[in-house]
């Protein structure tokens, strides 16, 4: 019940913020609504038991990217609160296309029976977040007493505590797949190579962005127009 309530609050905030980003013309207000939307998405991640991802969303997106965007707004504004308006015709066409796209997406989401598809997938021995139902059954069967705390500890590890598993999967290990007894699926691949690639990528981006945004002397165009 509480989960549902929280979901609705944050879902409405996320969608409302996104719609407000589209609807406002003032770019600083857009940044504000973007903060609201992305922050609510982070809250949805916490609800989806992805703690680390929610924290990363807050740190990188809301604290990093949006600050960068606002910084960009400040550096590129020619006057206070520059508004570059969209013409009404474009707004109408955009809204129509958007509604159509939304209709297509929503109707196709509604058509799919996810449970059936999940049944058809090869059953993974212990998906990290799916397993807790079985664990709870076990907890209920056990007599309440000294072992209850241990079981509860095991369950709490399942509730959004994915830091260790994520870290190991970046090192190329999959504790949720490989360490299960009788793992019939062989070694599940980890994410070591993508992780390394993304690290190099970040370094390249750092250098590239610094190169692109470096301070340049503006060429005086009246004197030498061919150089500008």
């Amino acid at each position: 019940m509480i989960e549902q309530l929280l979901f609705w609050v944050f879902a409405v905030l996320a969608c409302g913020g996104a719609i407000a980003v589209v609807a406002t013309q003032n770019v600083v207000r857009m940044a504000f609504w973007l903060v609201v939307s992305l922050g609510s998405v982070a809250a949805l991640f916490f609800l989806l038991q992805a703690d680390f991802l929610g924290a990363a969303q807050l740190l990188i997106y809301v604290g990093g990217t949006v600050v960068l965007l606002v910084f960009g707004v400040m550096l590129t504004a020619s006057g206070p609160y520059t508004q570059i308006r969209t013409s009404p015709a474009e707004v109408i066409v955009g809204a129509a296309v958007g509604m159509l796209l939304l209709f297509v997406l929503v109707s196709s989401i509604g058509k799919v029976d996810w449970d059936e598809i999940a049944d058809r997938l090869p059953a993974t021995p212990a998906a990290p977040v799916n397993v807790d139902a079985a664990q709870w059954q076990k907890a209920g069967d056990q007599p309440a007493g000294s072992s209850a705390s241990q079981v509860a500890l095991g369950v709490q590890e399942q509730q959004g505590r994915t830091v260790r598993q994520l870290g190991l999967s970046f090192l190329g290990l999959r504790p949720d797949r490989n360490l299960v007894e009788g793992g019939a699926h062989g070694l599940a691949p980890g994410y070591l190579l993508p992780f390394e690639i993304i690290s190099i990528h970040l370094l390249v981006v750092l250098i590239g962005a610094a190169y692109l945004a470096r301070a340049k002397r503006r060429v005086v165009s009246e004197e030498s127009p061919e150089l500008s």
């Binding site: 807050l58 809301v62 600050v67 606002v70």
Partner: peptide, 21 residues
């Protein structure tokens, strides 16, 4: 939270947004 230290760094970095805006 299991990632409490990470989360607190993330949350503390958000204050700057209010100040910039």
């Amino acid at each position: 939270a299991e990632c409490g230290a990470f989360l607190i760094l993330a949350l503390m970095s958000l204050e700057v947004l209010g100040i910039i805006l």
